[in-house]
Design a protein around this nucleic acid. Structure first.
Ligand code: FES
Ligand code: FES
Lengths: 156, 156
DNA sequence: CGTATTACCCAGTAATTCAGTCAACTATTG
DNA sequence: CAATAGTTGACTGAATTACTGGGTAATACG
């Protein structure tokens, strides 16, 4: 099963993108600064996100990245899938051949688990995350160091 | 998140143990033969399983391992936990400090995911797995090469 | 008693994967 | 043209995994 820093960073970065969306394209160096993710590493991740049609890029000065769909149309599972091959709990990659060409004793269990995880993550959209109270909290705290985040979180 | 061959092997081996339970203690070399898992590797896994009170051992000729509880009282989450530290989807190990001492933007998401997975796996007992039709199928096929599995799967 | 059988323990290793870096390149804006 | 920002690919150090081997301790059986 693969859920590592790579997938987590990707989701974090996408969420950052979604939060700052209305201020126009967001550059990777902004995200890098706010989320403490290495710029070069972000470049790798966004290359994959772009190939999978989750974001689009605007080059040149003032450029950056933008979600290619609305934030309620992008779910977490897609993001993880995009950077991490696939979030699959089986050993055989769903092929059922990890004993010696045959299904191992526990194949079905891992298939079920994969479904479970995928179902859960695909039920959560970026919009969903943006709206969470805690996300606002954290994002506002991050905003204080450097970025103005304007009228996004003016309550509480 | 850690779910690797180690955890999968552990569950597979425990299931094998549960299936062959009524024939007395099961030796690791039997399991090794049936499930194609290296003997020395199994030893490592069972050391942990034993320390966590999931199995008990009988030494000497005719010895082997035995479940220390009934098969419906052992669930998959316990097994994975026993060999794999913990099955945790967060980066911070539940501590909420992976940004710089503070929660990252997506902390809550990974917490929820961890709960989800843990809930799912702890709802599945060994007994549950033993009773599945597919498990019988596969086990019987494995039985043909070497081991007699007697009247365990005489239907279909 | 002694030998075969099994668990137990520890140290080490090859291969893989992750996380991150670097450097060179291309496209766009102004 | 110069500055900005994305694009690409190769590369590295560190960690982890998966696995091996050698030796020790307990027990049953003859
Ligand atoms: S996990 Fe699919 S065959 Fe073993
Ligand atoms: S995953 Fe817990 S703080 Fe980032």
């Amino acid at each position: 099963m693969r859920l590592t820093t790579k997938g987590r960073y990707a989701v974090t970065a996408m969420l950052d993108l979604a939060i700052h969306a209305r201020q126009g394209p967001v550059s990777l160096s902004d995200i890098s600064g706010r989320q403490a993710i290495s710029l070069s590493y972000l470049e790798q991740l966004f290359a994959k996100l772009r190939r999978n049609g989750l974001v689009e890029s605007i080059r040149g000065p003032g450029g950056g990245y933008r979600l290619s769909r609305q934030d309620h149309e992008i779910n977490v599972a897609e993001i993880v899938d995009a950077v991490n091959e696939t979030i699959d709990a089986t050993r055989c990659n769903q092929k059922g051949d990890c004993h010696d060409g045959e299904k191992c004793l526990t194949h079905h269990l891992w298939m079920d688990l994969s479904d479970q995880i995928h179902g859960f993550l695909s039920g959560i959209s970026l919009n969903h995350l943006v709206d969470r109270r805690e996300t606002l909290e954290i994002s506002r705290r991050q905003g204080r160091k450097g970025e103005r985040i304007s009228a996004l979180a003016e309550e509480d």
